[in-house]
């Protein structure tokens, strides 16, 4: 598994806290730690801002004026701006913490922060983001390659990865076995798959395996 190197702190931390003074103090501390910082008073400002370039994470106050940080955390998961979330709370209680962690929060930090805990949470969040981004990049590459396949090649790929033999595929698609072999060769080349096992893994990631077919159910 590939992970982003995390020896030197780098990354952009977004902070949403409705108390401007506290927000600024967190900003100062994070900048002193060497991070790039973006400060927001409310979730609307955060969503309106352009997404940060490098890896990043979000420090989110649970108690915001007129809105609930936990609700926003759940909304955010479904948005393209999704990134790892560290929750902050002035007076955390267990139900809040449980809800936040279930929704995928890296950590729930009580204010004022313990520096080590904060650093640890941030590096974990940045790592998670890097991984997320790497996976997303990987998936995007696969998707790009998959997009280059012809419709027939996609059909062949979907059937091959289920474990069917060439002649079964040919019968299924009403093609000659030779033609299937040529399509299969093209698929392996275009997808840059080293082996059938490789192709199967790619199909799983892309979600293109034809689930209605299995080798023994023809």
């Amino acid at each position: 598994m590939k992970t982003a190197p995390s020896e030197a702190p780098q990354g952009c931390i977004s902070v949403i806290d409705d108390d401007p003074e506290l927000c600024r103090s967190i900003g100062s501390l994070l900048r002193a730690m060497g991070y790039e910082v973006r400060l927001f008073g409310c979730t609307r400002d955060f969503l309106a801002a352009p997404p940060p370039g490098p890896t990043g994470c979000l420090l989110l106050d649970i108690r915001l004026s007129g809105e609930n940080g936990l609700d926003f955390q759940e909304e955010l998961n479904a948005l393209p701006e999704a990134m790892p979330v560290i929750l902050m709370t002035g007076h955390g209680d267990i139900p809040m913490t449980v809800r936040g962690m279930r929704a995928g929060a890296i950590d729930v930090l009580p204010k004022p922060f313990d520096e080590d805990q904060l650093l640890e949470a941030i590096s974990a969040a940045l790592e998670a983001d890097a991984e997320l981004r790497a996976q997303a990049a990987l998936l995007a590459g696969l998707q790009r390659r998959y997009d280059q396949l012809t419709p027939r090649e996609r059909q062949v790929m979907a059937l091959v990865v289920t474990g069917l033999m060439n002649k079964q595929v040919a019968a299924h698609l009403e093609l000659s076995e030779i033609t299937v072999k040529i399509h299969r060769g093209n698929v392996m080349r275009k997808m840059a798959a080293q082996s059938l096992a490789d192709l199967v893994r790619m199909a799983e990631q892309l979600g293109v395996r034809d689930a209605t077919i299995s080798r023994y159910s023809i």
Binding site: D19, E21, L22, R24, S25, I26, S28, L29, R31, A32, G90, H91, K111, P112, F113, E115
Partner: peptide, 15 residues
């Protein structure tokens, strides 16, 4: 009360 205190502590660590 907690907000400004948290800010004070955070600024101190930051400093």
């Amino acid at each position: 009360v907690n907000q400004p205190l948290a800010a004070v502590i955070t600024y101190a660590k930051s400093g």
